[in-house]
Design a protein around this nucleic acid. Structure first.
Length: 98
DNA sequence: GCGGTGACGCGGC
DNA sequence: AGCCGCGCCACCG
């Protein structure tokens, strides 16, 4: 595995500011990963020391097994969710042109 | 090398 | 609103 890529992901995830969120696809693209799945894999290994809760799926929903946790932590940062979905148009880190 | 798996994402029905 | 298939790729048995 490319440890550089691994670091890139960590850096990017850590770069997401409080009150904002990013998608796996965004992180993957910025990190240069060929697939967003790699992002999830990295977080599953070292996400413990990262603001992993700021990473959402492309539709604004968190991962099912972390959904409750995700939304709870985001809520503490001011990121409100509609049920299980977060309005990326409002909270997405950069690229929120719309 | 092969098949199954998974913090994903898009298209089709 | 749910279900399926494909692409993608490292990890595991």
């Amino acid at each position: 595995m490319n440890e550089e890529l691994h670091e890139r992901v960590r850096e990017l995830v850590a770069a997401v500011p409080p009150g904002k969120v990013a998608t796996y696809g965004d992180i993957a693209a910025l990190a240069g990963a060929s697939t967003p799945r790699l992002v999830g894999r990295v977080l599953s290994e070292d996400g413990l020391d990262l603001p992993w809760h700021r990473i959402l799926r492309a539709n604004g929903t968190p991962a099912p097994h972390l959904a409750r946790r995700q939304l709870e932590l985001l809520r503490a940062e001011g990121v409100l969710a509609d049920g299980k979905k977060v309005n990326l148009r409002t909270y997405r880190w950069r690229s929120n042109s719309g």
